[in-house]
């Protein structure tokens, strides 16, 4: 099932990826090929198969409720593109 340019634009927006108009067509071609390729899965009979989310049949371990972290804000914000007064700055959030 080939993806259209509009499909690619929609996916790119959901994934928050800026894609140039000339690249949209290229991605539409690539992604269509990939989706065609994975569509082989349709041929497998999985009617009685329990989906497998994880390779190991283990259960979640629980952590003790203890505070184990201290303030490392300065260190962690060394990687931040823009901070002020300890806050990460982003273009205005409109609700």
């Amino acid at each position: 099932m080939p993806l259209t340019a509009a499909d690619v634009r929609h996916i790119a927006r959901l994934a928050r990826l800026a894609i140039s108009e000339q690249d949209i067509q290229v991605y539409a071609g690539n992604l269509s090929k990939i989706l065609d390729f994975v569509a082989q899965l349709d041929k497998a009979d999985t009617s009685r198969v329990t989906p497998m989310a994880h390779p190991l049949e283990m259960v979640q371990r629980l952590r003790d409720d203890t505070v184990a972290e201290s303030n490392q804000r300065d260190l962690y914000q060394e990687n931040a593109p823009q901070v002020e007064a300890g806050l990460y700055l982003v273009p205005k959030v409109i609700e």
Binding site: A12, A15, A18, N30, L35
Partner: peptide, 21 residues
């Protein structure tokens, strides 16, 4: 969109879009 569009290369974008789809 621009930070991610500029920061990721073509194969990574391809896989992100495949996965999103």
């Amino acid at each position: 969109t621009r930070s991610r569009g500029e920061g990721f290369g073509a194969e990574v974008k391809r896989r992100i879009m495949t996965g999103t789809y």
